[in-house]
């Protein structure tokens, strides 16, 4: 047996050209591809149809007052052609931001506890409890918020407004801090309380997405950190949090998307006002979804169209938030294994 030395002619280098690659699928693959593809297409079509339906129904109302007035008017009185989403859109965003501010640290702490601290049955139980929290109907959260949370939280609201009332956001009109009477009515049905309830509702989604991304932090990097003598917090700070960054941002944004669309719980708690308010502790708040639920039953055809237009605005906002969220999750490292 001897070896071979292939002949090689450098001058013939140009002779090689890339050939086109074609391939035939197995029949089974054809069936599988068509089924999955149609599934994907149906979802897109439904999504597009919702958007088109809202837009086509809402357009007549918007045309009536003009887009600019629709976006800037605070009042909602379709019967006198004086309506716009300025107040409700602001209220929606405000409630969602309060919810986010409360839910984000709560979810971050919970998911770090689940992935980095808890072990065994605590870890398992907590994970399923969080998932269970997501299954609680929002009307139940609304009832809990209105009849359990609100009577107990108003004193805290008052405390904030007494001590931090100098910050405009926490100001409450018509309350005398020196009064010995326990007057809590001005603190009920506020943006703050609605935001707290919504926070409870978005904690599960935020926690489960953050937990998932933390859990996938590579064991090699974790051990590398510990082998350098890292404290647990040091390891979390250098390995888990940078790795889970996408999950933290993405989960928070998904929670924001939910908070924006939340309807019935807010509807049960707030007392609707149609003005742009900055005082979050004060009675009176509003949101697009809650307004639609409130006005829907008493609307004629034109008022309905106005509500559709408001719904379309909400649709656009939540879509933008959700797309941003999924883009961030997809681009982050936690979506993929570490290279190498």
């Amino acid at each position: 047996m001897s070896t071979y030395l292939p002949e090689y002619h450098p001058e013939q280098e140009t002779e090689a050209t890339a050939r086109p690659l074609t391939y035939r699928f197995e029949p089974k693959d054809y069936v599988f591809r068509s089924i999955t593809r149609s599934g994907g297409i149906i979802v897109l079509v439904v999504m597009a149809m919702v958007g088109i339906f809202l837009a086509s129904n809402g357009i007549s109302a918007i045309n009536e007052v003009g887009l600019w007035k629709f976006l800037t008017t605070q009042n909602w009185a379709p019967e006198s052609n004086d309506f716009g989403i300025a107040a409700v859109l602001w209220g929606t965003v405000q409630i969602a931001l309060v919810a986010l501010l409360v839910a984000m640290p709560l979810s971050l702490g919970t998911s770090l506890f689940i992935t980095e601290v808890a072990r065994g049955w605590v870890q398992r139980t907590l994970t399923s409890l969080i998932d269970l929290l997501a299954a609680v109907p929002s009307v139940v959260f609304g009832l809990w918020g209105a009849y359990m949370l609100q009577p107990n939280i108003v004193d805290f609201s008052k405390w904030i407004s007494v001590w931090f009332g100098w910050i405009p956001m926490f100001q409450v009109e018509g309350v005398d801090p020196a009064s010995p009477l326990r007057d809590t009515v001005p603190f009920t049905a506020s943006t703050f309380i609605a935001g707290l309830v919504v926070a409870m509702m978005i904690v599960p989604i935020q926690t489960s997405i953050m937990t998932e991304s933390f859990r996938r932090a590579p064991i090699g990097e974790r051990e590398g950190a510990f082998a350098l003598g890292a404290t647990r917090w040091g390891m979390i700070r250098t390995v888990v949090l940078p790795f889970g960054q996408g999950g933290i941002i993405g989960g928070t944004m998904l929670g924001l998307g939910r908070a924006l669309g939340e309807t019935i719980a807010i509807y049960l708690i707030i007392s609707p006002v149609f003005e742009i308010k900055f005082h979050i502790l004060e009675k009176g708040a509003n949101s697009i979804a809650a307004m639609i639920a409130l006005k829907y039953s008493e609307s004629n055809e034109f008022a309905m169209s106005a509500l559709m237009a408001a719904g379309f605005a909400l649709f656009i906002v939540t879509m933008l938030v959700n797309f941003t969220a999924s883009a961030i999750i997809a681009r982050s490292r936690s979506g993929a294994e570490s290279e190498g």
Binding site: E221, G224, A227, E339
Partner: peptide, 25 residues
């Protein structure tokens, strides 16, 4: 300890990786 699979911290630069032990401690 040095592991079988090299595990530098990917979010850090070479410089930061080298002194990562200080930050961790």
């Amino acid at each position: 300890m040095v592991f079988q699979k090299a595990n530098p911290f990917p979010a850090m630069s070479i410089y930061e990786n080298t002194v990562a032990g200080l930050k961790l401690a």
